[in-house]
Design a protein around this nucleic acid. Structure first.
Lengths: 167, 167
DNA sequence: CCATATAAGTCAACAAACCTGACGTAAATC
DNA sequence: GATTTACGTCAGGTTTGTTGACTTATATGG
């Protein structure tokens, strides 16, 4: 709060400014999910399947409990989607290396292919936005987004950007 | 593409970088909606109600069709939520000033109070993230987010930020 | 004036993706 | 050996979305 130009500082925290920040998130998320959703619909799957496929691909060998923590859903809800993905050959599971109660999840070749297909559009969208906005803007984007995320999950992005206020 | 330091340009568009961009959106949206969802659950409402209340508050006198376009849902889906909000006294409607087929929607006093209560946390979250990240980062955030949003809706944010590459 | 188009609502049936609560099984740990 | 942990499952319920068909009221163009 004690900062240079406190008037300006206050100015851009006004209602309109904050509403814009909220709406940017709403519209971006809406458009970000629309295309994968359309692809998934043809495969009789939904957004929930995409999330599972994405994070299993992101963290090969991830445990079911970790996935629950990331997705913030109940195990019953995850189970329906995950067991379908396993049944249809997109995901495999095997016992944990030291703790055999665990199920370590991985994508099959088909799963990897589907993941690529689904995320392709999102990556292109991010790449285009990054390219158009420029490197400095990308840095700002990350910094603000990290601030929006609960502290517990910020650690996932270590090294993503310099700490805010550090320069 | 033809840019200064093309090596670096390419470097930060790598897979890891893009995945981070995707995940930031996922986690931010997840945490952004969690608290309002909790409040709504106590009122036997859901996220869909919040979206309607938010945008009716944002654009008083908005027509039903406009709302459909923003939310990207069918009128049957909106109808269920909207008619409940009208029935319970959060939203009112009256015929359009020139075209009497239209229903111009507005929040009642109760609706405004609920809107404030629901959005309060989101505004605080955005304000905190903006404050921590600094003005330059906020500019970058907006620029990247605009790039993620389909072109058709970017016009909603005119004046939100300088055009990308303009400086 | 009349045909057509538009804004909005409604009925019906259905699916996706969440939820709570209770209970089961296997393996690890104290 | 009792307890805890990781995971799964059965059962039942809600919200939020869908498609398709039909209605009402009003505006508009020929």
């Amino acid at each position: 709060m004690a900062d240079l130009k406190p008037g300006v500082q206050h100015l851009y925290l006004r209602d309109e400014e904050l509403r814009q920040g909220i709406e940017l998130l709403f519209y971006a998320y809406r458009d970000f999910t629309a295309e994968p959703d359309a692809i998934l619909a043809k495969l009789a799957m939904g957004r929930a399947h995409h999330r599972v496929i994405y994070f299993v691909g992101r963290y090969p060998g991830i445990r079911v409990g970790e996935l629950l923590g990331i997705l913030r859903v109940t195990k019953q809800s995850l189970s329906r989607v995950l067991s379908q993905l396993i049944r249809e050959g997109y995901v495999t599971h095997r016992p944990g290396p030291t703790d055999r109660r665990e199920r370590r999840l991985e994508l099959t070749a088909a799963g990897q292919e589907l993941e690529r297909k689904l995320t392709e559009n999102q990556r292109a969208r991010v790449a285009a936005a990054y390219r158009a906005a420029g490197a400095a803007a990308v840095e700002g984007y990350k910094r603000v987004m990290l601030g929006l995320i609960n502290e517990a999950d910020r650690a996932r992005f270590v090294g993503a950007t310099a700490p805010a206020r550090a320069r």
